[in-house]
Amino acid sequence: MLNNGIEMPALGFGVFQTPPEVTTEAVRAALETGYRLIDTAAAYGNEREVGHALRLSGLPRDEVFVETKVWISDFGYSETLHAFEKSAKKLGLERIDLLILHQALPSRFELTLEAYRALETLHAEGRVRAIGVSNFMEDHLSALLEVASLIPAVNQIEVHPYFSQVGVQKADAARGIVTQAWSPIGGITSYRGGGSRTFDDPAIGQIASDHGKTAAQVMIRWHLQQGRSAIPKSVRAERIAENFDVFDFELSTAELDILDGLDTGVRGGPEPEEVTLEAFGREIAEAV
């Protein structure tokens, strides 16, 4: 349950870095498996394919919770209102369940505040059911809430056993904000290369063996038992199904503590303070 009373499934399906040509089939497989939360973003370039999968599924619109994100290049009040129009048209939806600011853009935080004001307008008009943020650190949240009328419902951040951002999670919890984990099973520790991978961690492997589960299932269960939302991704039907099969076992307090103790403090994604329009700006295509 989000802080505005809207229900959001805790376990969702993400499509970050999923090529458009395979996105539709991956989302279809996820929906057939039972996922009812789909996460995408304007910057992923696959919103249109997500929308196509939703229509092909035949599921009633109110059975699937759809969230997408506004990229920094579209920050600003009128710009963000237009970003909603682009995303909604690509998704084929009149209303989006959760609309999120993708980054805090610290170097131009006034644009961030204007973008969030646009989200508040969209929420007031009923065009989005909930609004949120992504990759916001404690100081970003504090600065936002000095002027915001609505507390974000969700803060989507990098969280996995090797990087758990406890401080941000506590800041979220103190404000009634749901922490949603991207790269929840530490995939970023694999495809970024170098260093150890969460999937190969012996402690995670032992817990998985004890439960007859995989390392990925253990990590997803860790998120759910600690009250986080998680959005694992895959393009393989068997892996998509495996990541959803996490509701028939429970981790002990000792096992949760072991997973908590694996935090390295090393971020896999970009440093939030280094996200600038100059370095990360990109044009988000119009919906045609």
Rank of each mutant, 00 (worst) to 15 (best):
M1P: 12
L2H: 05
G5V: 08
P9Q: 11
A10S: 14
G12F: 08
G14Y: 04
F16V: 00
F16E: 01
F16Q: 00
P20D: 02
V22H: 03
T23A: 07
T23C: 08
T24I: 02
A26Q: 03
A29Q: 14
A30T: 04
L31Y: 02
G34F: 03
R36Q: 07
R36F: 03
R36P: 01
R36L: 09
I38K: 00
I38F: 06
T40S: 13
A41Q: 00
A43G: 06
N46A: 07
E47H: 06
V50Y: 03
H52V: 15
H52T: 15
R55F: 13
L56R: 09
S57C: 13
S57V: 13
G58Y: 13
L59G: 07
L59S: 08
L59W: 09
W71N: 03
W71Q: 07
S73F: 05
Y77A: 15
E79K: 09
L81E: 15
A83M: 14
A83Q: 05
E85F: 11
S87Q: 15
S87W: 09
K90P: 14
L91W: 10
G92M: 12
R95S: 15
L98G: 11
L105M: 12
P106E: 11
R108M: 14
F109K: 12
E110A: 11
T112W: 06
T112H: 08
L113C: 10
L113G: 00
E114I: 01
E114S: 09
Y116F: 14
A118C: 10
L122V: 06
L122S: 01
E125L: 08
E125I: 08
E125W: 07
R127Y: 07
A130M: 03
I131C: 00
E138Q: 12
E138Y: 05
D139W: 12
H140G: 05
A143Q: 08
A143L: 11
E146N: 13
V147R: 12
S149W: 02
L150R: 09
L150N: 08
I151D: 06
V154A: 00
V154Y: 00
N155R: 12
Q156P: 02
Q156M: 11
Q156G: 06
E158V: 03
E158L: 08
H160E: 02
H160Y: 01
P161K: 04
S164L: 13
S164H: 04
V166W: 10
G167D: 11
A173S: 14
A174R: 08
I177S: 00
Y191P: 00
Y191C: 02
G193D: 13
G194H: 06
G195V: 04
G195P: 01
R197Y: 10
P202E: 14
G205S: 12
Q206T: 12
Q217W: 05
Q217L: 02
M219V: 13
M219R: 01
I220P: 01
R221I: 02
R221Q: 02
W222Q: 01
Q226A: 03
I231Y: 00
I231D: 04
P232K: 02
S234T: 09
E238R: 05
E238V: 10
R239W: 01
A241S: 08
N243S: 09
D245Y: 02
V246A: 07
L251S: 03
D257Q: 13
L262R: 06
T264E: 11
V266I: 15
G269I: 04
P270T: 09
P270D: 15
P272Q: 14
E273K: 11
E273Q: 15
E278G: 04
A279P: 01
E283A: 11
E283F: 09
E283T: 13
E286P: 00
V288N: 04
